[in-house]
Amino acid sequence: MEALIYGYLRDDLAEGRLGELEDAMCDLARAAGLCFAVTFHESEPGDGTAFAELTAELKRAEAHHVVVPSLEHLAGQTIPRDLLIAKLAQEAAAQVWTVQC
């Protein structure tokens, strides 16, 4: 059975390219031999609800992979971004994959 990978993106950064970005994340998953599960959409900038739901789902499903279109979808600045990546690693032993679109 293929390992699961979950997508995460901020709708405000998608600039009308939601379908294209999700397709790119699915393509990366397929190329890596992973099973793409679903994308968590952060619809309100800075809200964090979708990120919290993603983290909970990773733990529930015992999944360890997340794909984002770019690291900016986690956070625009390096330190907050590194904190979120560390949170995924610590709480769900998750690795972050990046598609540069």
Score class of each variant (00 low, 15 high):
E2N: 14
E2G: 07
A3Q: 15
A3D: 09
L4M: 10
I5L: 06
Y6E: 02
L9Q: 10
R10E: 01
L13V: 05
L13E: 02
A14Y: 09
A14V: 10
E15V: 08
G16A: 09
R17Y: 05
R17F: 04
G19K: 07
E20P: 08
D23H: 11
D23Q: 13
C26N: 02
L28W: 06
L28D: 04
R30P: 01
R30T: 15
R30K: 11
A32Y: 10
A32Q: 15
L34V: 03
L34Q: 10
L34H: 01
C35A: 15
F36P: 00
A37V: 01
H41G: 03
E44R: 15
A52F: 02
E53N: 13
E53M: 12
K59M: 10
K59Y: 03
R60F: 11
R60Q: 15
A63H: 00
H64P: 01
H65C: 12
V66G: 09
V66H: 02
E72T: 08
L74T: 03
L74F: 07
Q77C: 03
I79D: 14
D82G: 11
L83H: 14
L84V: 02
I85N: 07
A89L: 14
E91A: 06
E91N: 11
A92H: 02
A93S: 11
A93M: 11
A93V: 07
A94M: 08
A94S: 09
A94T: 04
V96W: 05
V99P: 06
Q100H: 10
Q100C: 09
Q100L: 12
